[in-house]
Design a binder for these strands. Structure first.
Lengths: 168, 168
DNA sequence: GAGATGTGTCAACAACACTGACATAATTCG
DNA sequence: CGAATTATGTCAGTGTTGTTGACACATCTC
C-alpha cells in the first residue's frame, strides 16, 4: 500500500516523473476525445463548445444565475454574455427575472434546449459508460478519487456538492 | 465485477445517468484546473496553450517530425506551423533536416526550451503527485484504466506506446 | 522525368477568450 | 430618502488559436 521510503534518489524520482507525465498525457488525450464527441452536433447549428458548456451547466443547475455560471465557467461576463444571448435568441435557453432579487436572471433550458443537451451529452455518456463498464467498479472509484483531487481544493467542495445533488 | 442485468428499468437508468454526468463534470473541472497551472508561466512570455502542447510532446518525443506532431495534436499544419515558427524564433525549439529523409524536420527542444518545459510541467506534476498521493495506488490504477478507456480506441494503442517508452 | 510526399507560407476568416468603459435596474444600507 | 453596491447587459477593440484554400519548394519514389 505505502511505498518504502528507502528509495528517494534519482532513479525513483525518474520513475515517478514518468508516471506523472503519463497522467498529463492521459488527461490531454482523454479530454481531447471526450470533447470531440459533441462537436459534430454543435457545428450543425452554428454553435461551439462554449455553448455546450453553458447548456450543460444550466441543465444541471436549472435556475442558475448568470453570476453562478460565471463562477463555474471562469470566463468574463462579456464572453459568457455573447454565448447566452445567442442561446436565448435561438430559443434554447430561457432567462427569467429573479423572484427574490429582481436583478438576477434565472437561466433554464427550453424544451428545445433540453433536447439538444440530451443529444450532445448522450455521446459523452456513451463514452463514459463504455469506459466505466470496461474498467470495472473499483477502477471507477479510483478514477473518481483521483479526479476529485486534481480539482482545485477551493472548488472541490462546490463541485462535489453540485455533483451529488440538484438542490442549490 | 459485472453488474446484475436484473435492473434495467427507469430507476437504475436514472442512477447510472447521474453517475455518468458526474464523470463529465469531473473531466471538465479537472481539465480546467489542470490546464490553468501553466498559464501564468506562458503569459509572461507571450505564449499560449498551443505552445505548451507542442513543447510537451517535443520533449516527450525528441526528434518527432512535423507530421508526427500534427497527428498527435490534430490541428491543421497552418495552425501548428504558426506555433512552431514562433517557438523556433524564440530559440525554444530546434528544427533539423531529417537524415534519412531530408524532407522531414526533426524537432527537439533547445536547453532554453527544456527549461521552460520543466518549469511548466513542474506545476502540473505537482498537482498530479498530490492527487496520486492522496488517492493511493489502487485509485491511481483505476484512474489510469478509466482514462485509457475514454481515449478513442484507434488512438489508444498509439498513446500507450508513447507513454510507455521514449523510443519511436 | 513524373508523380507523390513533407514542409512552409500567404490570405481570409471564425470562435472564443480578453480588457476597459459605460449603462441600467434593483437592492442594500446609512 | 439618497448613496453606494450589486447583477446584468452592451459596445469597442484586441489576441490566441483554430479553420479553409491555394500555392511553392525540396525531396523521395517509381
Amino acid at each position: 500500500m505505502q511505498g518504502q521510503p528507502t528509495l528517494e534518489g534519482t532513479a525513483a524520482a525518474a520513475i515517478e516523473d514518468q508516471a506523472l507525465r503519463e497522467a498529463i498525457e492521459l488527461l490531454f488525450f482523454a479530454y481531447r476525445d471526450f470533447t470531440g464527441d459533441p462537436d459534430a452536433v454543435l457545428a450543425d447549428r452554428g454553435l461551439g463548445r462554449a455553448h455546450h458548456r453553458a447548456i450543460h451547466f444550466i441543465r444541471r443547475r436549472p435556475g442558475i444565475t448568470v453570476a453562478g455560471l460565471l463562477d463555474i465557467l471562469q470566463v468574463t461576463k462579456q464572453s459568457l454574455n455573447r454565448v447566452l444571448r445567442q442561446l436565448i435568441e435561438d430559443g434554447l435557453v430561457d432567462s427569467q427575472i429573479g423572484k427574490q432579487d429582481r436583478r438576477e436572471r434565472n437561466l433554464t433550458l427550453t424544451p428545445a434546449g433540453e433536447a439538444l443537451e440530451e443529444e450532445m451529452s448522450q455521446l459523452q455518456r456513451r463514452r463514459i459508460r463504455a469506459a466505466y463498464g470496461c474498467a470495472g467498479p473499483e477502477a471507477v472509484a479510483g478514477f473518481r478519487a483521483v479526479m476529485q483531487q486534481i480539482i482545485n481544493a477551493e472548488d472541490r467542495d462546490r463541485v462535489l456538492a453540485m455533483i451529488g445533488s440538484s438542490a442549490p
